[in-house]
Computed example of a mutant assay.
Amino acid sequence: MASPVFSSGKEFQPNARFEQMNQPVSADQLQAQFDLPSATPEQTNRMTYEGVVSKTAIIAVGAFIAAVPGYLIPNVLAMYASALVAFVVSLVIIFRKKNSPALIAIYAVTEGYFLGALTTFIETRFEVPGAGLQALVATFATFAVVLALYRSGKVRYTSKMRRFLMISGLAYLVFSLFNLGYMIFGSSGSAWGLRTDVMVGPVPLGVVIGIAAVLIACVSLIADFDFIDNAVKNGAPKEIEWKAAFGLILTLVWLYIEFLRIIAILFGRR
C-alpha cells in the first residue's frame, strides 16, 4: 500500500484546498497582485519539489550518520529499543495534524541506529559481508529508476495501481503475520521461517516474496510521487515538505530491508 503518511493526509489528495488559497480577494487587491513581480516559492510560502528533495536528503543523511554507531558497535537490546521508538514516533508523525521536524529528527536517529545494527547482525549472522552496501545501492538505484519513469510521464498512479496496492499490500501483511506465528509457534529452526523452509523450485520462497515486495514498494513509490505532485500543484504550505519527505523515507526504509533480506536468503548461510 502507499505510504500511510500520504494515504492518511488530506493535504496530499487531488482536490485538497488550503486556507491561503481560499481567502476572498477584492478587484483592487487582485490587480495589485498582478502588478507585483513574480514571487519565488519562498515568498509565497508554498511547497516545492526542491524543498521535498532537500528535506528528504536531510533525513536520509541524519539516518545514515546514526547508522554508523549501530553498524560499528551493535547492541541487540539497543537495536530492538531503537526499532520500537522509531515505530512509535512514526505513528505519532503520521497521525499528528501538525508537522514536527523535531519528531522526524528523532525518527531518523532511532531508525538509522536500528538499520545499522540490523545490517551488522545480518552480515555476521548469515556471513554475507557487504550485504548492507549492496542493499543500499539497490535501494537508491530503484528509487532513481522509478523517479525517472514517473517524471518522464510514462508511469502514472492509476486506479488499477491503487487497487493493486490495496490487495497486494494486504496479502503481504497477512503472509508476514502468518510467518511470524509460524516462527514463534512452529517447529522451524530457520531465522526466516517459511521464507527458507519452503522452496519454489530451486529458489527459496523468501526470494519470491521479497521480489514481490520490492515490486509493491516500487508501485508505492509511484503513489508517493503522485501524492507529492498533488500537494505541490494545490499550493500546500511549505511545512508540508517535511511530512512528504518523511513519507518517502518510510518507503525507502522498506525497500532497503527487503533488499537486505533477499541478499541474506540468497547468499547467506542458514
Rank of each mutant, 00 (worst) to 15 (best):
N99C: 02
M166G: 09
A105R: 00
T142F: 07
G210K: 02
R125G: 03
P129R: 12
P204L: 01
P74I: 12
I106F: 11
Q134I: 13
V109N: 02
L147R: 09
A102T: 12
G70D: 05
P74E: 12
K97D: 15
V128M: 04
L133Q: 01
L115F: 13
A83I: 14
L136N: 06
V109T: 14
L180M: 11
A86G: 08
F178T: 14
G112I: 11
A102N: 08
T158L: 11
Y113P: 00
Y71Q: 04
A86N: 04
V203P: 02
V85L: 13
M166P: 00
F143R: 05
Y157V: 04
G181S: 14
G201A: 09
L173D: 06
G193V: 05
L205Q: 13
M199F: 07
W192S: 07
M161F: 14
A138M: 14
I209L: 11
I184H: 09
G181Q: 06
L173C: 09
L133E: 07
P202T: 03
I167T: 15
T196W: 04
A212E: 10
E127V: 09
I73C: 00
L177F: 14
F87V: 13
I184Y: 07
Y71S: 01
L165Y: 08
A105F: 09
Y107A: 01
V128A: 07
A108H: 04
L177A: 15
S190I: 07
A81H: 03
W192P: 05
V145K: 05
F87P: 03
G153Q: 08
M183L: 12
N75F: 05
V88E: 00
V89G: 08
F164E: 01
L115Y: 06
